[in-house]
Design a protein around this nucleic acid. Structure first.
Lengths: 261, 261
DNA sequence: CGTAATATTGACACTTATCAACCCGCGTGG
DNA sequence: CCACGCGGGTTGATAAGTGTCAATATTACG
């Protein structure tokens, strides 16, 4: 797959899986040798449309992908965000009719993995089946956390929480370095993820900047006060099931307090 | 299980599964002969606490169960509601450490099914494994729909949407008769599910009543204008994957319009 | 029959949305 | 090389939706 820049997306995918499930050597090898065909997607372009029936799953190799829904007023709600190493589509194995469209928020490269290959590896390795099933469960838990965030926190806390989550997930894929991580999505897209307006996201962003919690330069966020962000967003990363990332971030700033509730 | 009033919860569970997955006769029998030990829970009592590690899953036999989270302010967000026939806990097979507490909203009877038995049936029948996995995916999709509802609809639409969902799910378990179905939860609990205040839920309820869409008598809701409720809530039931229930409701009121988007 | 839980109502405060304008950086094309 | 256009960020004034608080009515239940 030499034509893909950046790390092998299967390696990132595997690393995330192994943070959450134990695999045998054969299972590991099986995952790493899954067939894949790459595909470039321009920003704002759909990756999978509503109701499409897929015969492959989509693994993000680079860029940011969103799953969303649209209400009649035209407003969008982003229901999940995905970075490199995320198999956006794993549930399509069980529900081939796509329940919510996928869109590339940035210039994105994904690799498509045939359902046939996934079904095969799942049938051969019960450990992989369990791991994939577990991934689906965790994805559901993350959505549930977003629901809590949108339902019961004010705009500032919502934003802080989302930023914390994306920081931890970026860290998991080695994209969090020197307190900075890429967040190349527009404030309007952030608003769609938080159930807010772009204007209000802008103001809350200024508020977080004003308190010295972070700096933001359009496509990147620099965390200035991780503990402060965690406090504002009431962020407890256990729901991400990425223990390494947690440790990595906790030590990055001075405070030694544990982040757990 | 003669000491359980009402229908065998396993039968309800099986019926829902079969609405979504195809099973063989042996798989069906396997599910119906799962061992279970009943348990009565008083209203407002926890069924599973945060972080508990379970060795069994909980199937609702009667009553209403909620999964929720609590933010620091003390506010609660209900993340899913469950009625008879729902295996509230299926994901605990994959994540034994419970990520969100379960509480009985009404007087409830659940039956506990040992993980050992579930693991066993899953290992013996790949079709059951797929069906259970699919249930987890659908549960996740429902949460995603709630996120859309809370993030991008106003209070009236949110309430209408929730009522539509509970109507369809009640219908699936034969509890929707004569345009009425049980909804024995308080307005405060509804508010916690919708990210609203009890006071505001009260007002929106009055609004829906005032428009002749429904009548509510505390523990029961009588649907007066199903099509109207669907319109106000922008409700499209496909995400529930309960095709029978949809047909049953669509014909119940005069309008013959299809409900699909 | 009494008591607590729930539903209802009203007045008011506050968060967030809406609308409109403006700025800025960047790529494009003349 | 500069003008232009455009997407995205920023700002201000105002409106709308929902929250808060407190009191009262109603219902459920022992």
């Amino acid at each position: 797959m030499s034509f893909l820049k950046g790390p092998d997306p299967l390696k990132l995918f595997l690393a995330k899986i192994e943070a959450r499930s134990q695999l045998t050597d054969e299972e590991r090898d099986g995952i790493l040798s899954l067939p894949m065909t790459p595909r470039q997607v321009q920003p704002h372009r759909d990756i999978v449309r509503l109701g499409d029936t897929a015969d492959h799953a989509c693994l993000v190799a680079d860029g940011i992908v969103a799953r969303f829904a649209q209400v009649l007023s035209g407003a969008r709600q982003i229901v999940s965000l995905h970075v490199a190493g995320d198999m956006v589509d794993l549930h399509s194995l069980l529900l081939p009719a796509n329940p919510a469209p996928l869109v590339a928020l940035t210039s994105t490269t994904i690799v498509q993995i045939p359902h046939a290959a996934l079904h095969d590896i799942v049938a051969r390795f019960p450990g992989v089946a369990a791991a994939f099933w577990r991934e689906c469960v965790i994805d559901g838990n993350i959505v549930a956390h977003w629901l809590v965030n949108v339902g019961r926190r004010d705009a500032r806390a919502r934003l802080a929480h989302l930023i914390c989550e994306m920081a931890v997930r970026s860290n998991q894929i080695e994209k969090f370095v020197g307190g900075r991580f890429p967040m190349p999505i527009t404030q309007e897209q952030i608003a769609d993820a938080l159930g807010l307006t772009a204007v209000h996201v802008n103001r809350m962003m200024q508020s977080l900047r004003g308190e010295g919690l972070l700096e933001s330069s359009g496509r990147e966020i620099t965390v200035r006060d991780w503990q402060g962000l965690v406090r504002v967003g009431e962020f407890d990363p256990v729901y991400l099931h990425l223990p390494n990332a947690l440790a990595g971030l906790a030590q990055r700033n001075s405070a030694t307090t544990a982040l757990n509730s």
